[in-house]
Write a protein that binds this DNA or RNA. Structure first.
Lengths: 205, 205
DNA sequence: CAATAAAGCTAATTCGGATTAGCCTGATTA
DNA sequence: TAATCAGGCTAATCCGAATTAGCTTTATTG
């Protein structure tokens, strides 16, 4: 009965590495430890497996709508954490965020699979943009907005400030997805990015 | 004799839309206006077509090593153009860059194809990173560096300043690749981004 | 002009991979 | 306990897509 879930898990791994079309039902079965025809006791087709993954992905996304930030559910509560924000804490926040995105197994596989399949289908494109563009900007915008209202940052354009915070993180993430060996380099740049961000937007009392 | 080239062209279009594995030799032939078996007079396999595209891509990349900026070949000459830089010109530079990337037919199709195939192969990953991360940062770094030395911008960390300039552009580009209907929105954000960039780094005499 | 090459076509051929058929076992349940 | 069901297996089947064979025609060229 756990087989059903294991199929999704192994399929996700394979799809994220090779893309849907390059994965054979056989590969999935092998990883699960059963024979290919047995898969059909659980899902009626390879496509159905893919669809089930997307459904589950959407489901998870709805829940932790803000896993994009450290604690997704309640920006006000998160802001609490940043009461005494300073540059080092901001760096910590950014690198934590980055590491979470980069290493969390589900997050990582979902993202890579969507990267590869995004042009197949309008809907997948929408999911990708929502997850890796709109939601992070929206949620991080709230957080940074709180820091502004607390007088820790200063700007007259919070959305663009948020873009300045997030876009480098996003870009470095895509680099690491494609070349994991560059993670150290990316982390260094991350830190420099945030320190500079703080210099640019921070009130620097 | 132009058929050989047309094959690459049509194949690139298809690969960028659907990915290598989802394109049938038949589709390519149809677009070229010949029958599938005739393709084999020009390339010995579907894979060989793909490889030829990558070769050509690399070739083009070497040439216009700096198509990433407005005029790739000579940053010093480019800098000439920006002698009397002001915010509006910087916006113009950025949006031109953005539009070029976004609409140039080859650039766009290469980029989308690489996006989709980047995880297939270490080499493709390297090509992608070089083309859309390292080279733009390097080249734009030179340009922005010139503006710094001319006293138009100010920073003690040019590479990070360059990251701040380019990362939002890159991210907005990926949004438009996946959802072309968001181009207007992206252009608005682009402009705001650059104006804010100029406020942050500009000397604002 | 004859020979050759280039480039197209139709008709196989091949082959791999998704799916189906049909059987078996062990648990559940009426 | 007999019937049903869940979930696995082996052995087909099916089918589509890449590639090959082999023919034809139209340049090229010695």
């Amino acid at each position: 009965m756990d087989t059903k879930h294991k199929i999704l898990d192994e399929a996700l791994t394979l799809f994220s590495e090779k893309g849907f079309a390059n994965v054979f039902v056989n590969d999935i079965a092998e990883r699960v430890g059963i024979k290919a025809p047995s898969l059909y006791k659980h899902y009626k087709s390879k496509q159905a497996i893919f669809d089930a993954i997307i459904d589950e992905m959407n489901h998870r996304f709805e829940q932790q709508a803000g896993a994009l930030a450290i604690n997704g559910t309640d920006p006000a509560a998160d802001a609490e954490v940043y009461k005494n924000m300073d540059e080092d804490r901001l760096v910590q926040l950014g690198t934590d965020l980055f590491r979470y995105y980069l290493h969390d197994s589900y997050t990582k596989r979902f993202r890579k699979m969507l990267t590869v399949e995004q042009f197949q289908d309008r809907e997948l494109a929408r999911v990708y943009s929502r997850q890796y563009f709109d939601m992070p900007l929206s949620y991080q915008g709230m957080l940074l907005g709180l820091l502004v209202s607390q007088g820790l940052l200063e700007t007259d354009n919070i959305p663009i400030m948020t873009l300045h915070f997030y876009a480098p993180i996003y870009m470095l993430l895509t680099v690491c997805d494609r070349q994991p060996e560059r993670e150290q380099e990316a982390l260094r740049l991350m830190e420099e990015h945030i320190r500079q961000f703080d210099k640019l937007y921070g009130r620097n009392f």
